[in-house]
């Protein structure tokens, strides 16, 4: 299975959303429960199979990416899951340490200063520093190079927090810029912000469901990302799409009763999917639909399937 999918890539059928192929940073976000982690993992798999070194980052969450691919949890260490694919669960404490070490260079100084109780106490109160170091660590990996000068990771995918908190999270560099005077922190915040708002580098992937409230929220999120954070949404993924199955003729053939109700219910859900797709298309970004999956356990097989659907429009 794995080999055949890999072979497909070799013959030129690239199973990753073409419009995202040239982006280095993908931010996957949406309402809670719409399938952000699923889509982030599937995109990671697709990107890795397209031959690009890809890192999937979860942000201070209950780690799920590695488990979905049938691998043990990675924790806060960047861990290889398979060829070209790495995952990490970015936690504030570890990120703070790594981030500080990047600036300070010396571990002994870090230990003396940052493990100091008083210092930790103060740092905790610097506005949004936690988010900044998490974002800082992720974006640091974006500019990391290998000895041969190529990128360590050609693509980074962030499984971002849900709607309201995503806006807060990605606003952090701006908040820092408005808050702290010039210095190392402000310089980094400036760099991060430039990175996030550069449409050549960064794209937001908005995940939604064919239900009224998730759709409303997606439309609001798209506007907020654009207006308040200046991140350009590039692609919308409509998850759990129900394709139309029964024709009007089918329904005519079914006598009133539970089977007809069943078919009508299916049709209503399919109609909801279509109208959801129409509303999302109005955003003017490419829309991908992933059909609702009926798999016994939601694991690797399901991710493979979702990954396949993200390849075709």
């Amino acid at each position: 299975m794995l080999i055949s999918a890999f072979e497909r890539v070799k013959v030129g059928k690239v199973p990753v959303i073409p419009v995202l192929l040239d982006k280095r940073l993908l931010i996957v976000t949406g309402k809670g429960g719409v399938g952000k982690t699923t889509v982030a993992t599937a995109l990671g798999l697709a990107s890795a199979r397209a031959g690009q070194r890809t890192l999937v980052c979860e942000v201070n969450a209950r780690e799920r990416v590695a488990g979905l691919l049938g691998r043990p949890e990675t924790g806060a260490q960047i861990t290889s899951l398979e060829e070209n694919l790495w995952a990490v669960d970015v936690k504030p404490h570890e990120a703070m340490r790594e981030y500080a070490l990047m600036i300070l260079k010396f571990e002994s100084i870090y230990n003396a200063v940052f493990e100091n109780r008083l210092v930790r106490y103060f740092l905790r109160f610097v506005p949004s520093l936690q988010e900044l170091v998490i974002l800082g660590k992720i974006l640091f990996h974006l500019k990391e190079k290998r000895p041969d000068g190529s990128w360590r990771f050609e693509r980074i995918i962030i499984d971002a927090p849900s709607t309201g908190h995503a806006i807060t999270f990605f606003s952090v560099p701006k908040v820092i810029l408005d808050t702290v005077p010039p210095g190392a922190l402000a310089n980094d915040a400036k760099w991060m912000r430039e990175c996030l708002i550069d449409p050549a580098i960064t794209a937001a992937v908005l995940v939604s469901l064919p239900e009224e409230m998730p759709i409303n929220e997606t439309l609001e999120l798209a506007a907020a990302l654009k207006d308040r954070v200046q991140i350009q949404p590039q692609v919308v993924v409509l998850n759990a799409f129900i394709p139309t199955r029964f024709s009007p003729a089918d329904l005519d053939q079914l006598a009133a009763g539970e089977l007809r109700d069943l078919a009508l219910a299916h049709q209503a859900r399919a109609r909801l999917s279509v109208s959801a797709a129409d509303r999302l298309k109005a955003l003017g970004h490419p829309l991908y639909t992933v059909p609702r999956l009926f798999t016994p356990t939601f694991g690797r097989a399901a991710i493979e399937e979702v990954s396949g659907h993200l390849g075709a429009r």
């Binding site: 600036i103 200063v113 103060f122 740092l123 610097v126 702290v180 010039p182 210095g183 190392a184 922190l185």
Partner: peptide
């Protein structure tokens, strides 16, 4: 000194 390198002295 080290902390102010991190956050800028005025921040503190």
């Amino acid at each position: 000194k080290t902390i102010s390198k991190f956050t800028g002295v005025e921040t503190l």
